[in-house]
Design a protein around this nucleic acid. Structure first.
Length: 280
DNA sequence: AGTCCCCACGGTGGCTTGTC
DNA sequence: GACAAGCCACCGTGGGGACT
């Protein structure tokens, strides 16, 4: 990728000379796909990254020589000697995800991603009239990384109020506002999914068009229409719930077995019955 | 015969949203 | 702020097919 072995060695040398908040010890730098992962045994003195980023403490107080130097050497930042907050701002400038800190197990682990994860996240950062605070960007970063699962309720409320995110737990996603501004409407629809009534109608129509449909058939019909953010399990559950709803409403009925279902349209059965009567 | 897997089915609890 | 409604995820149970 973009980081050469020479740069890594140089960074390592500089790291050892420039540890401020890291205890001396073994420093590991791993380059993986488009990520750089720094690991260093020791304690993170400021306590939490949050306090550093959110406080208005002068940058130099929380300067982290090791990381800043390494990032400079990796050409990830433009100037030497920045603090932790600057790292966040640099990632912001490049429309990349925020640095990921893991402070568990008596070590400091920082993951810097060097690529755009969610185009909508990048688009919202790139907006010229964007008035986002760094806090908000960090929140949005959580949404692009884990659909906001790790965000406290207050943050979710805030983002929703600002119309930066939509969706409901556990499927938050970055809002349509951005999608419209950046001509990503089709992409947005794929993410948001469609009305439930649309899915129900699709099943009913499909069942009407065939003698019967297996569960696999129904899966195949709906799978690509469901939001991209859903994983396989969620899609399976979702379709199961849809089928269940139609069954309860007596729109469809399973004429097969549980193991090998054959879903048929009840309306169609009724029509064919009355049809036979009227024909003769 | 035993095991594994898929799925239906009914039930339920958590969460969000809308309404009053 | 209370309440209902809707949606989602998960559970246990059990039938049935495929495979060994």
């Amino acid at each position: 990728a973009q980081y050469s072995p020479d740069l890594i060695y140089e960074a390592l040398n500089n790291c050892i000379a420039h540890q401020d908040y890291f205890l001396k010890g073994y420093i590991n730098i791993v380059e993986k796909d488009d990520e750089l992962i720094f690991t260093n045994l020791g304690e993170f003195i400021p306590g939490s990254v949050e306090t550093v980023v959110k406080s208005d403490t002068p940058a130099e107080r929380y300067k982290n020589g090791f990381l800043a130097e390494a990032m400079f050497n990796f050409k990830m930042i433009q100037t030497r000697g920045g603090g932790i907050k600057m790292m966040f701002n640099e990632q912001r400038r490049r429309l990349f995800p925020m640095p990921e800190y893991d402070l568990s197990d008596q070590r400091v682990k920082v993951t810097i991603t060097g690529k755009i994860l969610d185009p909508k996240y990048a688009a919202i950062l790139a907006q010229e009239d964007s008035d986002l605070t760094l806090d908000e960007i960090i929140m949005l970063d959580r949404v692009q990384k884990d659909k906001g699962k790790s965000l406290p309720v207050a943050d979710i409320r805030h983002l929703r109020k600002r119309r930066l995110i939509e969706g409901t737990k556990p499927n938050y996603f970055i809002s349509a506002q951005v999608a419209q501004k950046t001509n990503q409407k089709a992409e947005y629809t794929k993410f948001r999914g469609l009305d439930k009534s649309f899915y129900l109608e699709m099943i009913v129509n499909a069942v009407n068009q065939h003698d019967f449909l297996s569960r696999k058939d129904i899966n195949k019909i709906l799978w690509d229409k469901l939001p991209e953010i859903m994983d396989d399990k969620q899609k399976t559950d979702k379709i199961g719930n849809l089928i269940r709803e139609l069954r309860v409403k007596k729109e469809i009925i399973n004429t097969g077995t549980d193991g090998e279902p054959k879903w048929v349209s009840l309306r169609k059965i009724n029509e064919s019955l009355t049809g036979e009567f009227t024909r003769d």
